[in-house]
């Protein structure tokens, strides 16, 4: 927590756009996102075998991080925002993964 307290406020203030990318970079990122999406959809048409699901998960992660990092400016803003977002994300994944594991593998048989 101490890092968020001591960092330079000017860097964090929402209005300081000098560090942010310009429209050109945003479009470039969008093109990459579009390509990644095309790759995702291609799993529907092309058989990737056992690789398909890991590939989809990785692509999803990359898209997530790119939108959060660039469009939501997480890469340029205070780390606290990222901690809140990813804290919520990983908290949710952890809790619900345990729930699903308990329900799927350690529950009662159906009748």
């Amino acid at each position: 927590m101490s890092t968020t307290e001591t960092h330079d406020p000017a860097q964090a203030a929402g209005g300081h756009v000098d560090h942010h990318p310009g429209p050109r970079e945003y479009v470039r990122i969008a093109i990459i996102l579009a390509i990644l999406t095309a790759l995702e959809v291609s799993t529907y048409f092309v058989d990737f075998g056992a690789l398909a699901i890991p590939l989809l998960v990785v692509l999803m992660g990359i898209k997530f991080v790119m939108v959060a990092g660039f469009f939501m400016h997480l890469r340029f803003d205070t780390k606290l925002y990222g901690r809140l977002l990813y804290g919520g994300l990983f908290g949710a994944i952890g809790l619900y993964a345990i729930t699903l594991i308990v329900m799927s593998f350690d529950g009662a048989p159906r009748v």
Binding site: G91, L95, I98, V102, F105, D106, G107, A108
Partner: peptide, 18 residues
């Protein structure tokens, strides 16, 4: 406190590992 919820369900339909 987020990791102990199922102790309210010890007699419910959950198995010995949980």
């Amino acid at each position: 406190g987020f990791g102990v919820w199922a102790h309210h369900m010890f007699t419910s339909a959950i198995g010995p590992v949980a």
